[in-house]
Simulated scan of single mutants.
Amino acid sequence: METKYLTEKDGDQAAAILRAGGLVGIPTETVYGLGANGLDAQAVAHIFEAKGRPQDNPLILHIPEASWLERYCQNIPAAAWALAEAFWPGPMTMILPRKDLVPDAVTAGLDTVGMRCPAHPVCREIIRLSDVPVAAPSGNTSGRPSPTTARHMLEDMDGRIDAIVDGGPCSVGVESTIIDLTCTPPRLLRPGGITLEQLRSVLGEVAVDPAVTRLLGAGEKPKAPGMKYRHYAPKAPVTVVAGEPARSAAYIAAHAGERDGVICFDEYMSLFTGRAAARPVMDLGPAGDKEEQARHIFDALRSFDHTDVPAIWAQCPDSKGIGLAITNRLNKAAGFHIIEV
């Protein structure tokens, strides 16, 4: 299969591919998604084939506006409309009771479905033109770091899908927040661009699912993408070092092997760059700028796949604000191999 490289002006072509049951890489503000017609079970099955994704990992349906919720969901609570008004279009997915027309292939057999209205205007226009909800996980092969540019996605999906639409680099850089509205209190299943603090400002009490801070065990069924499996991982094993930035940087400097890769904050690059020829170093961004760190994290992890580093060591921020999403992605990339200093 030849993968077509499309631009923002090719929305009609991308929509036609989706309507015909094909796969399209679509830009969002979070990461690039691998999109298919979310009402076509066969097209959705091709997503799993292209990614090598486990079949029990549910997908998210993307819609261009909140009014489309009523097409695919039932018993929609008032909390959903309040969240949509506050944060849509934007990096937030809501788990809601699904209608029967949503295929089991999308929901992994669950009676709920994740719904999102992305902020990227090109993405929303493609969905409008296709006139179908777009099922779209991140556009990487399963387990690898998510793509935040069309180039990243092409590395994984060239020859596997029909087309990729280049909408520029992603402005958020980590996947959407997932909030389950089918339980009381609502439950955060995956942290993302909309923070736990922002959710609580609208909903009041919000519980945090244990899967945010650990992997699901055998027999535990995921209600949302990314909850169960080792995720976001480069080829080399990752160790996350958590704690006050100066201490975590010093720990990595003392314990990393000479050929190990390092992901660190701006302020501590000088600890490692003197031996850059032997030890590749990736800049995560300033220690105090978590939004910048979120935009860099997947690019940093992916970059080491082009090297022969035997291991990767990573600093991480605290869990306030979007820091919870960054630490979640790093910890999952590391298989929750975390050292506290």
Rank of each mutant, 00 (worst) to 15 (best):
M1V: 07
T3C: 15
G11F: 09
A14E: 01
R19F: 14
R19M: 12
A20C: 15
I26D: 03
I26M: 03
P27G: 12
E29M: 12
V31T: 03
N37H: 10
D40H: 15
A41F: 15
A41M: 08
Q42H: 12
R53F: 00
N57H: 09
L59M: 15
L59H: 10
I63Y: 05
P64A: 15
E65Q: 10
A66H: 04
S67E: 12
W68T: 02
Y72H: 07
Y72S: 09
A79H: 14
A82G: 11
L83M: 06
W88R: 01
P89W: 02
M92I: 09
M92F: 14
R98S: 05
D100R: 09
V102D: 00
G109Y: 01
G109P: 01
G114P: 08
G114R: 09
M115Q: 00
R116D: 00
C117G: 07
P118W: 15
H120D: 14
H120Q: 10
H120K: 12
C123S: 10
C123W: 10
E125H: 06
I126E: 03
I126F: 02
D131H: 02
R144Y: 05
R144N: 05
L154P: 05
D156E: 03
I161M: 08
D166I: 13
C170S: 15
C170R: 13
I178K: 12
L189G: 00
T195G: 04
Q198A: 00
G204R: 00
G204Y: 00
E205F: 08
A218D: 08
K223H: 07
A224S: 15
G226C: 10
M227G: 07
K228Q: 06
Y229W: 05
Y229K: 07
K235V: 13
K235Q: 14
V238M: 10
V240A: 07
G243M: 08
A250I: 14
E258V: 10
V262N: 08
V262Y: 06
D266P: 13
Y268W: 14
Y268S: 14
L271F: 09
A276N: 09
A278K: 09
P280E: 15
V281E: 08
M282I: 12
L284A: 13
P286C: 07
P286Y: 11
D289Q: 05
E291R: 10
Q293W: 08
F298T: 11
L301E: 08
D305G: 02
D308H: 04
P310C: 00
A311F: 02
I312Q: 14
W313E: 02
W313N: 01
A314P: 03
S319P: 12
G321D: 06
N328I: 12
L330D: 04
N331A: 06
N331P: 04
N331R: 05
A333S: 11
A334P: 06
A334V: 06
F336Y: 02
H337Y: 14
I339A: 11
